[in-house]
Simulated assay, not measured.
Amino acid sequence: MKCIVGLGNPGKKYHHTRHNIGFMVIDELLSRHHWSLNKSKFNGKYALEHDLGEKIIFLKPQTYMNLSGECLYPLMKYYHIDIDDILVIYDDLDLPVGKIRLRQKGGHGGHNGIRSIIDHLGTKDFKRIRIGVGRPTNSMPIVDYVLSTFPKAKQEDVHESIKKSADACEAWLKAPFNEVMNEFNH
């Protein structure tokens, strides 16, 4: 069983914010396959689906970003999901809007959702897709920036990065992650 986790904050007020780009990728995947988040447990909403002979969970933690690990860890234990079968999708300030980067492991880089997952799982060794949201070009505090929406001028880049990230998720269901990284990291 594989688990694809999109990070974000629950609630309408956060729906289109930079911090919720992980949720947006899960929405794209669900839309492509006409699936829905029809289960709710472990402070998360998720879909348990079958594709290509594999069970897959698409998860949106509902704990708020900083507590994402509190949702993922019990779900992994309940479904006996191995750390190698987890893929976490989240926003990254250090990448420009429209850019994605796949990694096999790494630190939290100041991202509190990833910090929570590392703390709860007890390891940094899980697959990720980092999606660029850029940094503020003015004196806007980071917290306000990640909780703001993308400007209209960046919408096409945002949609492209969501599409590419969903494509990478689908590729991972068919191929080893290092091959997927070689295809999408350029």
Rank of each mutant, 00 (worst) to 15 (best):
G98L: 00
T137Y: 07
A171S: 13
C3S: 12
Y145M: 09
K99P: 00
M65W: 09
Y73Q: 15
K39M: 06
K13C: 06
H50I: 10
M76D: 09
P151S: 07
G44C: 10
T149G: 05
K127R: 15
I26D: 03
K39N: 12
M181C: 04
T123Y: 12
D125Q: 14
L48F: 03
V158R: 00
F23A: 09
S148R: 02
L48Y: 05
L147S: 06
F58M: 14
V180A: 01
R135S: 11
H19S: 08
L67W: 03
H186K: 15
K152T: 14
K127S: 09
K45T: 10
G6W: 08
N112Q: 13
H186Q: 13
G6L: 09
F177S: 11
Y64V: 08
T137S: 12
V133T: 13
K124F: 01
K55L: 14
K2N: 11
P61H: 09
L102Y: 00
M76K: 15
F23C: 07
I118S: 11
E70H: 14
T123P: 13
R32N: 12
F23Y: 14
D27K: 08
K152G: 01
I21N: 05
P151C: 02
A168W: 02
V158C: 00
L95W: 00
L30A: 13
I4N: 04
K105S: 15
I114L: 06
K174E: 15
S161Y: 03
R103L: 07
D85V: 05
N112A: 02
N182G: 07
G132H: 06
Y145G: 04
E49Y: 11
A168T: 10
L121A: 13
I114D: 06
H33D: 10
K77I: 04
Y79T: 03
S165C: 01
S36F: 02
M76N: 10
I26G: 02
G53E: 07
G98P: 03
R18M: 06
M140K: 12
K127Y: 04
M1K: 12
K99F: 01
E54F: 08
I118T: 10
D82F: 05
L95T: 04
D91T: 14
P61W: 11
L93D: 04
I118K: 07
C71M: 13
R18S: 02
K154S: 14
H33L: 08
Y73H: 13
G134T: 02
T17E: 05
F42D: 04
L30F: 09
N138I: 06
M24D: 03
L72M: 12
E28I: 01
L102Q: 04
K154T: 05
